[in-house]
Amino acid sequence: MEALLPEWAPNIHPMIIHFPIVLWIIAVLADLVWLFLQKNWLRNMAVALYVLGALGALGAYLSGTQAIDLVSVPMQAELTAGNHSDWGSYTFYFFTAYVAIRLFFFWKQWDKKKWLAIVLVITGMVGIGIVAQTADLGAKLVYKYGVGTQK
């Protein structure tokens, strides 16, 4: 796997992390638009994006667990690194649980009920908040402390 990495990349983690962020945000937007248009393709698209987002979160979680021991972390960055790691775990657990529930509702077609769809959009937005906090801490590690900027 390391042979596939560009020469400048410290590890695969920074290549993966953007996928769950973007996929989840677009999934929530698709859900939101479904509330008004109620088109079936929007509902299918949202569920597919949530599943891909959760898979992206799994990749980010696994690569992050590996990366944290491969990069040099300055002592003053250790708390940020620890918090980023914790929030990364919360993101992965939340996305996985949400997708499991979402697939069940999709199978039962319960997510077509408007009141439940609104609850699901709001819960999806909570997911955006969690992934944003994780991303913010990760950005702080790189741009404030320079973690992973040198191979």
Partner: peptide, 16 residues
């Protein structure tokens, strides 16, 4: 050695 919240690490130089 670093103790950051619930995270503990031991290094030799910069290698974990």
């Amino acid at each position: 050695v670093t103790a950051a919240g619930t995270h503990y690490k031991g290094y030799i130089g910069s290698k974990t």
